[in-house]
């Protein structure tokens, strides 16, 4: 769905405020990157430079829209900041052609924003060692992705690794890096049920999976976006952002679900691991009242945060 330019600004600012209000933790893609990405595609920053503003069926910005900001970032980082056009040059261009002057101003604003700040990646794999010794240790793996349905995904893995795990390199200083092969593996299997993902990762790397979490930001519901059939239609009457996580881990003492869309835990869990599911919402006005009422009916509380349509200043 393509948003008209006049609607894309309020849309982006509302989504940004909702993401900010939910303050996603380490189970999700980094908050700062998400907010910067939204700031970049906001017409208040980039005008119509990154248009068309397209969204997916989940109400999240499309891959192509977000990718344009990433492409501008690559260009911005390639160019010397001193070669950015100055105010006088932009004024001069605007006097010759106002639209061209506006584009030059917007491009400069986007480049200045993106030169030193990171954006959400199409896919990215990061790994860190935790207490790694000669006989092995713990590896923390983050895999971030713009999912095909538009939601923002993080796979978070805690692996008990032998001294020389497959797909990882641990240098003398104890710093770890992951091979491309693992990234390719996770890109292929990011959406499979968690028990299957745990098996894949364990088989491929030779590590024991102590924790495997999948965190999603989105969908973003508002009038015009189709809601899942199990959700009351009132939830789509305002603005409502979902933030959910599904985890299997060996340190969950009391398996439970706090996700109203998954009221029952899956039957199968990998050996030694337990399930935890959670979903929180950021909502405005009508949607806020509707989602609070819906959750109370299921005995769930404290999962909704209200948000204004403007993000706080960062």
């Amino acid at each position: 769905m393509e948003l008209p330019l006049a609607r894309s600004g309020p849309y982006v600012r509302a989504l940004r405020a909702a993401v900010d209000a939910l303050a996603p933790d380490e189970d999700h893609v980094p908050l700062r990157r998400a907010l910067t990405h939204l700031e970049a595609i906001d017409p208040a920053t980039s005008g119509d430079l990154l248009a068309p503003a397209e969204i997916t069926a989940t109400g999240m910005p499309s891959y192509t829209w977000l990718e344009r900001a990433r492409a501008e970032q690559i260009l911005a980082r390639r160019t010397d900041p001193s070669r950015d056009p100055g105010d006088a040059e932009i004024r001069r261009a605007a006097s010759l052609d106002p639209a061209l002057g506006a584009r030059m101003r917007d491009r400069r604003a986007v480049h200045r924003l993106l030169r030193h700040q990171d954006l959400l990646p199409a896919t990215e794999l990061a790994v860190a060692t935790r207490a790694f010794g000669p006989t092995g240790g713990r590896l923390a793996v983050h895999y971030d992705r713009l999912a095909p349905d538009g939601r923002w995904l993080r796979l978070r893995l805690e692996l008990d690794a032998p001294s020389r795990p497959r797909s990882f390199t641990i240098d003398a200083a104890g710093r770890a890096s992951a091979d491309e092969s693992l990234r390719h593996l996770l890109t292929r299997h990011f959406a499979v049920p968690l028990p299957a993902l745990v098996r894949q990762v364990a088989d491929a790397t030779g590590c024991r999976v102590a924790r495997c979490g999948r965190g999603w930001i989105g969908p973003f519901w508002f009038p015009g976006i189709e809601l899942p059939p199990e959700v009351p239609p009132d939830l789509g009457a305002g603005l409502l952002l979902n933030l959910s996580v599904e985890v299997v881990a060996d340190d969950i003492e009391h398996p439970r679900t706090l996700d109203p869309l998954h009221p029952f835990l899956p039957a199968d869990a990998p050996e030694g691991l337990s399930w935890f599911l959670s979903r929180r919402f950021a909502a405005t006005g009508v949607a806020h009242r509707a989602v609070v009422g819906w959750l109370e009916g299921m005995g769930l509380q404290g999962l909704v945060v209200p948000f204004g349509t403007r993000p706080r200043n960062l």
Binding site: A71, I74, S167, S181, H184, T187, R188, D203, A204
Partner: peptide, 28 residues
Amino acid sequence: ARRTALMRRSVAEELFKRYEATSVRLRE
């Protein structure tokens, strides 16, 4: 199976990489 799982490349990854390269050139 294990070797193949790690050796096999993701089509999506290749597509993202190619798309990004084309997108950058287009912005340029």
